[in-house]
Amino acid sequence: MLEVRNLRKEFGDFVAVDDVTFSLPQRGSLAIVGESGSGKTTTARMIAGLETASGGHILVEGEERGPGHKRQRQRQRLRSGERRARGRQIQMVFQDPYSSLDRRQRVGAAVAEAVALHQRLPADRLRARVAELLDMVGLDDRQAAALPKALSGGQRQRAAIARALAAEPQILILDEAVAALDVSIQAQILRLLADIRARTGTALLFITHDLGAVRHISDDMLVMQAGKIVEHGPVATVLADPQHPYTRRLIASVPKPGWIPRRRMDPAAAARLP
């Protein structure tokens, strides 16, 4: 359903994303794993349309929405109808739940605004749809009437997910969406996402540095390093039998029983660090 071909992003001389190619099937779940500077977030932002790609193709159901799109080629702005149609293709949930919501807007109103952008509904049906979305993410009436600052991080992230689902997107991108949450809350959100995928068929593109979360949320994974894909395969295979040295290094860095931290970086490599 989503196809990314030879995607590239340059910032001046710096190549942040280099020749990234992958596809995400209908109802699929793919994780892009990498550390800071790997280009994983830039890739996600280009796919969502928040960043303009320097080259390559982004296709949703065969339809170009990346640099090959005719309006983007002619440097024209999208019409509002087109923007909304794109919104029904891809939505995104961000890392920081505290700034993902407008601090002056009640949570229910934020979800209602998102619904109203995509469906013209009479007031009572709009209310019902908002209640349905909030219920799906586990928020009640009291939380719907609250301002973001009255909610916990996990509740805000639930609200952000409900808002994204309001557009009924085919693909939901999660950019480190649980990284800022408490451990016990991360598990709740991961389960919620798996549940949403099962119920709505929304495909998930999970951007993360957390290999543990990947096993629970994704079928396939990509490992990115310095803008390039270094490994690609089913999650269980990659975690059990990593081929690329960098993937092995990543897995070896995860604490587990009997794990002893080791310095693996040689001093020469350390000297090249910024």
Partner: peptide, 26 residues
């Protein structure tokens, strides 16, 4: 640059709406 503005853009909210309903009041 706050993510809620990006979220509104991804939903297809018109720029005028983002300015008047969100940025200016804030």
């Amino acid at each position: 640059n706050l993510p809620y503005v990006s979220a509104l853009q991804l939903l297809g909210a018109p720029t005028a709406r983002i300015w008047l309903r969100h940025l200016l009041p804030n």
